[in-house]
Design a protein around this nucleic acid. Structure first.
Length: 429
RNA sequence: GCGAGCGUAGCUCAGUCGGUAGAGCACCGCACUGUGGAUGCGGCUGUCGCGGGUUCAAGUCCCGUCGCUCGCCCCA
């Protein structure tokens, strides 16, 4: 036990119960994405470090990426985010693709950070992007897509919210306060920290970043201006569209949302749990106008978001919204093995049932029936099939409903139909 | 990178003032040789994270180290 090599820090082992959760999440995401007409795509997990040097935040590349040299000495990164790969893929075929693109992806990402609740070094992300439409309505569609996942997994608008803001709006407001353009980035960081520091620490931080007293109180006022969105040419249209898309309950304006990544240029949004103890954001996204041009493509506007699996899982777990029976066998039918002589007959019957389209778990050894039934309970089977000497002699099989403990005998050829009947009627898993 | 807490049976944990290691659950067996979730009885399980030190004696105290967890930072 002590000699087992430790797993790599920040990685997770997906035992069947955990794998079932990620598979469920993936397929739910697929359903929601496809319901909006988005196509699945993926990029490579390995990328040249140069791809990220171009535009991702400094910190993300320098501090938080897994980087190693290949045999030629080129620096390769395990992808810490998807957007640069997406942009590269589009730029490579920019003339061949037809727009708008509605693409989604789900896959692993790596960041070298210290693991804690809701954060690891290897995690999954859902990415969705709408490329080639520059409108508040397109922004609203992305938040609607995000909200639809929340709806689908059982998270209501009283539990999660998508907070929305607009960078251009904020830039204008800061300019009106007399804050020079080269200070805006710093002020965005000040805003980003509002909820993390207490009042006086926050003020100290703001002044240290170069704000004057009057500019500081101006920023302070901005952050409680809950109807600031009305001054934006885009946000009123955004909220009307969100309303039309049926997700008005899920979206809310927040002047405090600003997003860390440098490449956002317009509307930005961030999904947060309202009730959870975990204050980390579930998903974040926004509009980027310059990414394609930055990598040498024609200018093309896009909007997208990323959602991490770890924070979402924590929240779903807290609210008891993860799928049940995560550890059950995918087969709901278990064929017992009565004794050594009839073992192969049990195998044969199993094969017949599978041919009829029924997933079957065959008990591996001729143990006492009691033990086999107990095992059937443990693997989550709902039906047990018994083929003993009596049944074999009469060309019958006994079929037992494990939840009601009722048992019936059927002619062998009727067994598949009888089992399917039981599975249909019984309580759903 | 910084700070705090925790490492004892497969799991969750107890272990007093330093005195030779415990409980519940799980598992196995029996009661019960063609029938499971209950009950009773019996059984199995330990590098007390690792290394050093103090001591007649260390799970317990000290030092170091590794690991995990939770925060800070940053972000999904």
């Amino acid at each position: 036990m002590k000699n087992i090599i430790q797993p790599v820090k920040g990685t997770r082992d997906f035992y069947p119960a955990e794998k079932a959760v990620i598979t469920w999440l993936w397929s739910t995401i697929r359903e929601v994405s496809e319901s909006f007409g988005y196509q699945e795509f993926d990029g490579p997990y390995l990328e040249s470090i140069d791809l990220y040097a171009a535009k991702s935040g400094e910190e993300l590349v320098k501090e938080q990426s897994f980087v190693f040299p290949d045999k030629n000495g080129n620096l390769i990164a395990l992808r810490p985010e998807l957007t640069p790969s997406l942009v590269r893929m589009i730029a490579q075929k920019q003339q061949q693709l037809f727009y708008p693109l509605r693409w989604w992806s789900f896959g692993p990402f790596w960041r070298y950070e210290s693991p804690q609740k809701g954060r690891g070094r290897e995690f999954f992300q859902w990415n969705a992007d709408l490329i080639g439409v520059d409108s508040p309505e397109a922004d609203a569609e992305l938040t609607a897509l995000l909200a639809s996942l929340f709806q689908k997994v059982g998270l209501g608008p009283d539990q999660v919210k998508v907070f929305v803001n607009n960078r251009r709006l904020m830039e204008n407001e800061l300019a009106e306060l007399g804050i020079p353009e080269d200070l805006q980035g710093s002020v965005f960081r000040v805003i980003d920290r509002r909820d993390k520091l207490n009042d006086s620490d926050w003020k100290d931080y703001a002044l240290k970043m170069g704000l004057s007293e009057s500019q500081f109180s101006g920023v302070q006022a901005l952050l409680s201006a809950d109807d600031l969105w009305k001054k934006s040419p885009e946000l009123p249209r955004f909220f009307e569209a969100a309303d039309a898309l049926g997700v008005a309950e899920y979206v809310a304006y927040s002047p405090r949302v600003i997003r860390g990544l440098d490449y956002y240029t317009g509307t930005v949004f961030e999904a947060q749990a309202i009730t959870s103890k975990v204050r980390r954001s579930i998903a974040g996204g926004g509009r980027y106008d310059n990414l394609l041009a930055d990598v040498g493509g024609q200018p093309l506007s896009g909007v997208g978001f990323a959602l991490g699996d770890m924070v979402l899982s924590v929240i779903l777990d807290e609210l008891d919204l993860l799928p049940l029976n995560r550890d059950a066998s995918p087969a709901q039918v278990m064929v017992t093995v009565f004794d050594e002589d009839s073992q192969l007959a049990a195998y044969q019957l199993s094969a017949e049932l599978r041919k009829a389209g029924i997933p079957v778990y065959t008990y591996p050894t001729p143990d006492k029936l009691g033990k086999q039934f107990k095992h059937a309970d443990r693997i989550g089977a709902r039906v047990a099939v018994i083929l003993g000497p009596d049944e074999i002699r009469e060309k019958k099989v006994a079929i037992k409903d494990l939840s009601t403990r009722e048992q019936f005998t059927f002619p062998r050829e009727d067994a598949p139909k009888a089992i399917l009947g039981l599975l249909e009627n019984g309580p759903s898993a």
